Simulated assay, not measured.
Amino acid sequence: MKLARSLVSKTAPAYVQFYLTSRCNLACEQCNIIYADASAREMNIGQIRKMAENLSEIGVCIVLLIGGEPFVRRDLPDIIKAFTDVDIHVRMQTNGLASREMLESCIAAGGHDISISLDSLRPSLQDTINGGFNKSWDRALSTIATVNEIFPDNATAFLNSVLMRRNLDDLQDVVRFATAIGWGVSIVPAHVSSPEEPRGFRAFDDDGVVGFPREVWPDVRRSIDILKAQRKEGLNLYDSDEYLEDIYRFVTGQPLQWRRRNGGVCDSPDLYFAISPNGNMKVCCDYELDTSYPVHHPDFPTWYRDGRIHGETQSFTRACGGCMYGSYPEITISARYLKPMIERFLHFNVKPPKLQKLSVAELRDIAATILFERTGEMEDRNKPGSADREMGTIRV
């Protein structure tokens, strides 16, 4: 009900992305967060508790704990509890670093919603996308198995997949895999930036493996059409048709349509915004405000309500050509288009996917079968590939 009121009134943020840290044990090709936010000092738990109170006061419904890799913070369960204590729903995100012990602590703190990054069912390709780290795909599968085993029956789990030049034919496999194991899928197209202007989720595409040159546009079109057909078949692809069509427009440089019912701008900060590791409010994951507005500051609710934040944010949103960072477009679409709003309600409240308790071996078999049915090939995990680095641990 709180979320519904937010989407209907559009006067309280439904959703906030909180970048806990820029630290990460991977170096994914499509992510520059370790560069974009590297200078931002992380908040302590006291500041985060105050921030959670302020977010609750202005009506925030959902917070996504993102990074970097959120699970490098050993106080993550305390961070989750800071939000659940004030009735804010928490979604955790991980690349597979999460240990069983940490996941159990997060569940005890009230975290029952998780997403894991997975871009392919081909282990060697996933390892390459993740920066050349051996067995990062295996680590993600192990975490998926743990989630399915220990999370409560009413838990929500998603695979986050980035559409990029390397994996145009792979996302249909990920959707089939997710459906088989009781997960959902959310897709984001790769965004490209430059070293002169690094942004958190915009890749440096020096090698030409992330972006979408004109010659691959027909392949992108085919991929989008397959994904839409999978949605029609009832597979667990969260994204709306409206959003999927805008992925193609984004890739091919056409004007985006998801903002057309709001004067061609996004809904930040009315429905969503982002927070950097140091607690400063951001327009989104791309843009910092010129003025510093620490969300943990006692006056933040006043700043939000008196219009100063909105005025400064709109100077960015009016000039922005638009992004396709999944959650932002989909929340606007859900708030402004009736059909997607109904689909969201049904997905989360009437027919939510049910996690299937499967072992790692069973997950591997499902993935291998899906891959074989499409390609006729079985990948040999013992065959040397392009991934040559071991997945590291991070001292906290």
Rank of each mutant, 00 (worst) to 15 (best):
F273I: 04
H191T: 07
K232M: 04
W303R: 09
V90L: 11
L76Q: 06
G96S: 03
M1Y: 11
G376P: 08
D138N: 12
H310P: 02
C24G: 12
P301A: 07
A36H: 11
V396G: 06
A180F: 01
N236R: 04
I48V: 09
V216C: 08
I88M: 12
N25M: 01
G321M: 04
T291Y: 14
F177L: 08
R49E: 09
P198N: 08
I331P: 02
T375H: 05
V220S: 07
R139Y: 00
G59N: 06
I181R: 07
I394M: 14
G208Q: 08
Q93S: 15
N262I: 10
W303D: 12
T143P: 00
A335L: 03
N130S: 15
G184L: 07
A319H: 10
R49F: 04
R74D: 00
D299N: 11
S142W: 02
C106V: 09
Q93C: 15
D75C: 02
D113C: 08
Q356Y: 13
N95H: 05
D85Q: 10
I181F: 08
E373M: 14
C266F: 12
R122I: 09
W137N: 10
T302F: 08
E149C: 01
G110N: 10
D299E: 15
N349A: 12
V16L: 13
I342S: 01
D113S: 11
H347K: 15
I366Y: 04
L141G: 00
L338P: 06
Y238H: 10
Q314N: 13
M1T: 14
R395H: 08
P198D: 05
V350G: 07
I58C: 11
V188D: 14
S161D: 05
I116S: 01
T375I: 07
F316D: 00
R381V: 09
L235W: 00
L338G: 06
G385Y: 07
E215K: 05
E29H: 04
L118D: 03
D75E: 10
A368C: 03
E362R: 14
L358I: 02
P352H: 01
A4D: 12
R259Q: 13
K232L: 06
N25L: 01
D37C: 12
M324P: 15
N167L: 02
A98Q: 05
V147K: 02
A229E: 13
N32P: 11
N25P: 00
I226W: 06
D299M: 14
F201L: 13
E196Y: 05
A335C: 06
D267M: 15
P123M: 01
I129D: 00
V175I: 14
R122V: 10
R5M: 09
T393H: 13
S117Y: 03
R73P: 01
C284F: 01
N134E: 12
L76N: 07
A12D: 15
N32Q: 15
A274Q: 05
D75W: 03
L121H: 02
P13A: 10
P218Y: 05
P294Y: 06
V396N: 08
L97S: 14
E343R: 13
W303M: 12
L26K: 07
